[in-house]
Computed example of a mutant assay.
Amino acid sequence: MSKILVLNGPNLNLLGTRQPEVYGHTTLQTIEEACVAHGRTRGLEVACVQSNHEGALIDAIHAARDEQAGIVLNAGAYTHTSIALHDAIASVDLPVIEVHLSNIHAREPFRHHSCIAAVVIGQICGFGAHSYILALDALAAHLDGEAGA
């Protein structure tokens, strides 16, 4: 069973109450529970981590190198600003899928650019909480050699 890290960045702990018109009403706990349950159906052991701190996210990415087969990452606003996250992802040689609840390309112009896009295997955005399930499916296919890159 492959181990996968679902890593969530700043403000995602407020899901369900934070701007529900943009991010929906689903809580992070519900998303994490769904990821763990869906992961089991795909032969994945899913662990979930959330932090509002960039350094803690970097530490989690580094730790995943020795523990996980891949990462599903919603870096939140750090997606658009963090060269440090880019460098951390590039340094661990793990497949990472970038996830966003909203369609970042249909929002404010500053959200259109992702600092981490160049070092992830793909990006899924705009499908709400289901974006995580799509990412787990894509990562499972990648690990099984079913997804071309």
Rank of each mutant, 00 (worst) to 15 (best):
E98M: 02
P95L: 06
D59T: 10
E67P: 04
I104H: 03
Q68V: 11
L57G: 04
V96L: 02
H105A: 09
A69N: 06
G55D: 06
P109L: 05
I116H: 01
C48D: 03
G70N: 08
T79V: 02
A69C: 00
G76N: 02
I58G: 06
H105C: 07
G76L: 00
S91Q: 11
D59S: 14
S51L: 10
A56Q: 15
I104E: 04
N74E: 07
C115E: 03
L73T: 01
Q50Y: 14
P95V: 05
V96H: 02
H112V: 08
E98L: 10
S51E: 07
I83Q: 07
I104W: 06
A75R: 01
A64Q: 00
A84V: 13
A69G: 04
I89P: 01
V92D: 03
N52H: 14
R111Y: 11
H105W: 12
A84F: 10
V96Y: 01
P95D: 07
I71V: 15
S114T: 05
E108G: 11
Y78A: 05
S102Y: 04
G70D: 05
A60G: 08
V96K: 06
I58L: 07
D66W: 14
A47Y: 05
V96P: 04
D59C: 04
H100L: 07
N52M: 12
I58P: 07
V92T: 11
H105I: 06
C48E: 02
A90W: 05
L101Y: 07
H100T: 02
R111V: 08
I71R: 10
Q68F: 06
S114C: 09
A64N: 05
H53P: 00
H53Y: 13
H62F: 08
A56K: 01
T81Y: 15
I61Y: 03
A60V: 09
A56Y: 02
D87A: 01
N103M: 12
A75K: 01
A84G: 12
N52L: 12
P95N: 07
C115T: 02
H86S: 06
A63W: 13
D59W: 06
I97S: 01
S91P: 00
H105G: 10
L101H: 03
G55L: 04
H62L: 11
I83T: 13
I89V: 15
I71Y: 08
T81N: 11
N74K: 03
E45A: 14
E67H: 14
N103K: 12
A88I: 12
